[in-house]
């Protein structure tokens, strides 16, 4: 299921402002890739180009290619809606649908995609909630509102919702930044478990988290405020954190700036 992503010569714009410049990288299948870097360096922006969420913002454009399994996601005849079904996303703040119950939240992607079979939906809800380590906590109140859960549970609910549509890639944009340490640990354990089935890309501000969960790490930086962000280097996480190839990477991870 999981597939690798090849990014080539990616430039990302907000209207005329070039936010990210010249990114080329390979994201391996069935592994966790972490994006780290100071605020404003464009790591979230790059992440959002991987499922064409970037263009949801008015006047946001992209040049370059993002190949998923050899197919460029930015080809003219590619449907962004289909791309997002293949490449799921979890956001910084938990955002369950407030009108829906816990099970409806998980089933939302399938239901809105046209799935009507109750047995199929119920099976997907249980599988996804188990996959997100939330089943035991919510199995007795599946018809209760999703917004009634704690922050950490809501975030796992959002992960369950994302994996319910069986994507091949899961993008996570600082998924733990709004959570307490215990909930963070639960999410990190979960990432460790599901990476056997998915290609995971996670943006994080927390370097320990990057070191704990990821196999590969990409460090982004920007020359100065107002300048476009760029990829400084990308390597195995152990190498980045022990023996980075570039001085600025070392400065950043040792806390000298950022």
């Amino acid at each position: 299921m999981a597939q690798r992503i090849d990014v080539k010569d990616l430039n990302i714009y907000y209207d005329r402002f070039k936010a990210v410049e010249d990114v080329s990288m390979t994201i391996e299948a069935r592994s966790v890739t972490a994006f780290i870097g100071p605020s404003g360096c464009g790591k979230s922006t790059v992440l959002r180009t991987l499922n064409r969420m970037h263009e949801v913002i008015p006047k946001a454009t992209v040049t370059g290619t993002v190949d998923l399994n050899g197919r460029n996601l930015y080809d003219r005849d590619v449907d962004p809606v289909a791309v997002r079904r293949t490449v799921g996303m979890v956001f910084q703040r938990p955002n369950p649908f407030p009108t829906m119950s816990i099970s409806d939240n998980v089933a939302a992607g399938l239901k809105l995609g046209g799935e009507r079979n109750k047995a199929v939906l119920a099976e997907a809800v249980e599988r996804s909630l188990r996959g997100a380590n939330l089943w035991n906590e919510v199995k007795d109140r599946l018809d209760k509102p999703g917004a009634g859960l704690s922050g950490g549970q809501q975030q796992r609910l959002c992960i369950a919702r994302a994996i319910a549509v069986e994507p091949q890639v899961l993008l996570m944009d600082e998924p733990c930044s709004a959570l307490d340490p215990i909930s963070t640990l639960a999410i990190e354990d979960l990432i460790e478990e599901i990476k056997t089935n998915y290609t995971i890309v996670i943006v994080t501000h927390n370097m320990q988290q990057a070191a704990r969960v990821s196999d590969r790490t990409a460090f982004f930086n920007l020359a100065a405020t107002g300048k476009p962000g760029r990829l400084v280097e990308m390597d195995d996480t152990t190498k980045i954190f022990s023996n980075p190839g570039r001085k600025e990477t070392e400065d950043y991870i040792s806390g000298r700036f950022g």
Partner: peptide, 19 residues
């Protein structure tokens, strides 16, 4: 309605009109 809900829906591969 928070934009996050629209984005959450788009990210599930739901078309705009259905969102």
């Amino acid at each position: 309605v928070p934009n996050e809900l629209r984005e959450a829906s788009y990210a599930l591969g739901v078309p705009k009109w259905k969102t």
